[in-house]
Amino acid sequence: MITITDFCSQYELLFSVPDDYDPAILVVKSLIESYPKVDAKLFIGARDVGSNGKINNMVRPYEAAKFNNIVISDTGIKTTPTTLREMVSCLKPDVGLVLQMPYCAPRKGFGAVYQQVYFGTMQARNCLSANACNINCSTGMSCLLRREVLDQAGGLAPFGKYLAEDHFIAEGIRKQGYKVVLSTLPALQNSGNCGISDFHKRLVRWAKLRMTLLPTLILLEPLGESVIQGAAASLAAGYLLDISPLAFFIGHLLIWFLSDYILLRIVQNGPLPFSKFEFLAAWLFRETMAPYILIQGHMTTHVMWRDRKYRVKWGGEVERIPELGETIEDKVEKFSADSGNVATQRSSKKMVEVLNCVAVTS
């Protein structure tokens, strides 16, 4: 986790890892030594303020931050040279939080294409429409906030009891009379894990959280899916207008497909990094899997997040379900196995990207 504060004329980089066994520690220390003129600090050790491990990891650097404007950026987010400048330009006097709409950086494999299509179509459609209607659509992957405003809502620590802390942070800022807006640049997820199975677990977790936060979505969300909506509309058209249900359904999917393709091109802001056939395959897979994801969200009694199990309560609060084997010895073994993996390399790339970004912005 990296926190960047007050990057217009002065800035600092605050890195935070949960414990002494995180493989990113050696990389961050090495890079801090390589850039001695950069005001950067590494915080080791989380403070337990709730069940949310991300909030626990951020509380210490948040409280130690020198400046009022704070960017929270997940390690897996790719930072471009124009990211910070664009986010700062959106921070008007009446704005308390600037969000980046989640998207994906180009990666290899069908799983990467599938994720990019998901975030560039379904997720983008929901996020943009909710923002246009002044509905909370917050995602915490990459955001810029005013610390003084969040402090009026109690600071960062009170949100540790929620797994969807981004939603409640945005609500806390909105209650202070400030706007929450979207940056024109999306957050580019750049994780090395493009597995479809792991991605589906994320979707099931999000579906479960949405249902507990906004129970009305239990009925409304399925109606927003192309297959379910198309099937219902086709039956109605056949009964009321004597139109072939199959022909109506095919026309419905074609219009939806073309609309999603146009939206994805807009989000990508240029040619797609994959073929039209790959887009078609990923789009069909996404649309046909959507009902399955929703059903799984209903059926699951808990959610998994970063290899940890949580029980979600109505209203958004979560309770950590401890598992066997969570000992220091396990962490040492995991550190030894992960010390040379992709996560370590990603931490190195992340700091270099941020340093380049801050240099351009300043």
Score class of each variant (00 low, 15 high):
296 Q>E: 13
140 G>E: 07
174 R>I: 12
22 D>R: 11
309 K>G: 10
245 P>Y: 02
275 S>H: 10
175 K>F: 02
27 V>C: 06
258 L>Q: 06
267 V>M: 13
172 G>A: 07
144 L>D: 11
153 A>V: 07
121 T>M: 08
191 S>Q: 04
57 N>S: 09
64 A>V: 11
170 A>P: 01
51 S>P: 00
344 T>Q: 14
273 P>T: 01
65 A>G: 06
293 I>F: 01
150 L>S: 05
339 S>Q: 13
142 S>M: 11
115 Q>G: 07
293 I>W: 00
3 T>L: 15
231 A>L: 13
86 E>M: 05
324 L>M: 13
259 S>C: 07
177 G>M: 12
23 P>I: 11
90 C>Y: 03
238 G>R: 10
3 T>R: 03
185 L>R: 04
13 L>M: 13
46 A>C: 05
37 K>I: 04
28 V>P: 01
274 F>G: 12
24 A>G: 04
356 N>L: 08
170 A>I: 02
295 I>W: 10
318 V>L: 02
328 I>V: 10
142 S>E: 13
64 A>Q: 11
179 K>G: 03
212 T>W: 05
6 D>K: 15
207 A>P: 11
250 I>W: 01
284 L>C: 15
145 L>S: 04
235 L>K: 14
205 R>F: 01
209 L>M: 15
294 L>E: 04
352 V>E: 06
344 T>S: 12
16 S>N: 07
68 N>E: 14
168 F>S: 10
298 H>F: 14
218 I>E: 03
58 M>I: 05
287 E>R: 13
14 L>H: 07
155 G>A: 03
153 A>L: 04
362 S>T: 12
351 M>W: 07
192 G>T: 15
35 Y>P: 00
164 A>I: 00
164 A>L: 05
318 V>I: 14
67 F>C: 10
16 S>G: 08
44 I>P: 07
34 S>Y: 07
314 W>P: 01
83 T>A: 02
322 P>R: 06
132 A>M: 10
185 L>K: 05
27 V>L: 08
352 V>M: 04
331 K>Q: 09
186 P>Y: 00
3 T>C: 11
335 F>H: 14
195 G>P: 02
100 Q>D: 00
177 G>F: 05
86 E>S: 13
119 F>H: 06
65 A>L: 06
288 T>K: 08
175 K>W: 02
52 N>E: 04
286 R>H: 02
182 L>S: 08
165 E>V: 09
169 I>F: 08
101 M>R: 07
178 Y>F: 13
88 V>K: 00
199 F>M: 05
298 H>W: 09
175 K>R: 00
287 E>A: 09
253 L>K: 12
164 A>V: 02
208 K>M: 05
283 W>R: 14
112 A>K: 11
255 I>L: 12
307 D>R: 08
189 Q>M: 13
248 F>S: 04
306 R>Y: 01
204 V>R: 06
115 Q>V: 03
223 L>G: 05
